[in-house]
Computed example of a mutant assay.
Amino acid sequence: MLVNELNTKESSGLLSAVDRMREILHNEKITLPEIIVVGDQSVGKSSVLEAISGIQLPRAQNICTRCPLELRMKSTANIEYAIIRNSKRSEDAAETLNDMNEISNAVTRLTKEIAGEGTNVSSTPIYLTVYKRHMPYDLTLIDLPGITRNPLPGQPKDIHAQILNLINKYIEPVTAVR
């Protein structure tokens, strides 16, 4: 059964190497499989990821996902925890979260660090790796900013085009499941 094969020590090591490759090759022409959530703003994209992952992501009235969130789900037999970092920083600057309830706050904090306090959108991703017990398989999910048709106060007039360009960058590879 595929689930048993993916949960071996050897497979886990290989999948970790794939995640490191994904970061290294982020702007290159080599792509790796990933599931990408795309749609209009405030239609429930993050809620779908919450249902799949079992972790709570930030919620807001207007635009909430303002930069790509690369969510990597990993199975563990031990303690559950998460590692999160701003992709502008080295892996040494990653933050370990032992309380899964802190993930939402950490994502919000890094989003503000990357995209600012307002409603701007950035193409710089946040990397979040969550280690949970009873995960049937390791999985990479990508949450992207929702499509905004009319700029909010403080957003550039071309926000719609900026978001579409960001989405197209992620969904262009044939390995992207969307």
Rank of each mutant, 00 (worst) to 15 (best):
I55V: 15
Q56Y: 14
L57P: 05
R59S: 13
A60N: 03
N62K: 14
T65D: 00
T65N: 05
L69C: 11
L69N: 05
R72N: 13
R72D: 03
R72Q: 09
K74W: 13
S75F: 15
A77L: 14
I79M: 12
I79H: 15
I79R: 10
E80N: 07
Y81V: 01
Y81T: 03
A82I: 02
I84M: 08
I84C: 07
I84Y: 07
I84N: 04
R85K: 14
R85G: 01
K88D: 12
R89C: 09
D92V: 14
D92H: 12
A93S: 13
A93I: 01
N98S: 08
D99A: 01
D99F: 00
D99R: 02
S104G: 12
N105M: 11
N105T: 12
V107W: 06
T108I: 04
R109M: 12
R109L: 11
R109C: 06
L110A: 01
K112A: 09
E117W: 12
T119L: 15
N120Y: 06
S123H: 09
S123T: 10
T124Q: 13
P125R: 05
I126C: 05
I126D: 02
Y127N: 01
L128N: 04
T129G: 03
V130H: 02
Y131H: 15
R133T: 08
H134P: 00
H134C: 09
M135K: 15
P136M: 09
Y137I: 09
Y137N: 08
D138H: 15
D138I: 02
D138C: 06
L139K: 11
L141M: 14
D143H: 05
P145H: 02
G146L: 08
I147Q: 10
I147G: 02
T148R: 14
T148H: 06
